[in-house]
Design a protein around this nucleic acid. Structure first.
Lengths: 215, 215
DNA sequence: ACGAGCTTGTGACTGAAATCACAAACTCAA
DNA sequence: TTGAGTTTGTGATTTCAGTCACAAGCTCGT
């Protein structure tokens, strides 16, 4: 989050430094938290001045491992897969989609974003050839477990799963999931609750009018 | 998460009940936490038996507001927008993409997933006509703020932002963001760290060999 | 050189979330 | 009916993240 705020800031304003207060406002958190978080990187701030934006950007980028190039395999070239393949946000952060895989013969061989879709069975050789280190799963839920296993078998230790299903892998593999609909469900929960509260208040108001004697 | 695990379970296995232990394993959390979480819904479990899967599914669905239909506006019909428009996971959970908006004349008028893309300026009328209650932003980062403001102006109180930029709205509006590349950055961080540790261990080993006298 | 005005870095504190641990409540077999 | 074996629901405890508060350290004007 800080990284994103700092990048925004570096682009737009010509400022050299930023205070924890300012960064906090941009990132939507407490200023003390900003300082504590940044202190884990070392003492890169100057009292009375703030943090040097460029230096801080470099340190965060380095710590997150974003100075390296991470060749990434994308499995499942459906609607979501295609969108991810051409998603600017990945390449901007050093995540280069380097190989595409699917199991559907109609899709295999197609050109997507300058890459040819290959069969999932060729994953292992491709990992060796291209040095793939991260795998993204964008398959239907039912195919996610198999995709994960093939990735692990090929030696990939970091997996990002966009399929809305539970995937089990050995504990030394780092798997994270993004469920696109979970955030919508959270919004729905709050909407539902505010509506329910409004309805209850309304019902209550009617009752009071009915039963309370006029003053 | 519980909802998803339970749906999986209801589909595959023919079990009637589930224990907190089992659900915890599926959802990847502590069993006591499962019980405490579920207890907020009321006491729907039976000691010595567990929870009735169907009943629990209904209660969670109801509490999350997923028994209702939530007509949703989607702004920004680029790669990601198109993928989201046809994403099965949304409709399965009751989120119906009911209207599409963009500002690009080349895109406006196109048919995407059975809907015609309209100009963002028509948002307000569409909110009134179709009863849109949730807005999804899938624009480029620079256009996200404007899209959010138009949504708020039209009366939408729940917004999901896929654009990787900070968006400010009044506090009575519920805005959540999904940053597709943040999860990759987290994976990168761990990869970077394990590689750094491995490198340090290797360097250390070499030093020891060099300096330690042979036994 | 010095004091006013900032801003960082961090120990102390607070509050919330996660976990533990166990009584209570159920099933089932004998 | 009883007792062994489960499993829930929840008070007590632990852990951890977030916040507060302030000394330390910097700049700049005078």
């Amino acid at each position: 989050m800080y990284l994103r705020s700092l990048l925004d800031m570096a682009e737009t304003r010509g400022a050299i430094t930023v205070s924890s207060d300012e960064l906090a406002r941009l990132a939507g958190v407490n200023a003390a938290k900003v300082r504590k978080d940044l202190s884990y990187l070392g003492s890169y701030g100057t009292r009375g001045v703030g943090y040097d934006i460029e230096y801080l950007l470099y340190q965060i980028t380095r710590e997150l491992g974003l100075t390296q190039d991470w060749p990434t395999a994308l499995i499942g070239i459906g609607n979501l897969g295609r969108a991810l393949a051409s998603y600017k946000g990945f390449s901007e952060r050093g995540f280069r989609i380097a190989a595409l895989f699917d199991v559907d013969d109609d899709v295999i061989g197609q050109q997507v974003g300058g890459l040819t879709v290959r069969h999932l069975d060729e994953l292992k050789e491709s990992v060796n050839e291209d040095g793939l280190s991260i795998g993204i799963i964008a398959t239907p839920p039912s195919a996610a477990q198999e995709a994960a296993e093939k990735l692990v078998d090929a030696g990939v230790k970091s997996i990002l799963n966009f399929a809305p299903s539970v995937v089990n892998v050995s504990p030394d593999v780092n798997i994270r999931k993004v469920d696109l609909s979970i955030e919508l469900q959270i919004l729905s929960f709050y909407e539902q609750r505010t509506q329910a509260i409004a309805a209850a208040r309304e019902a209550n108001r009617r009752l009071e009018i009915k039963h309370r004697p006029p003053r």
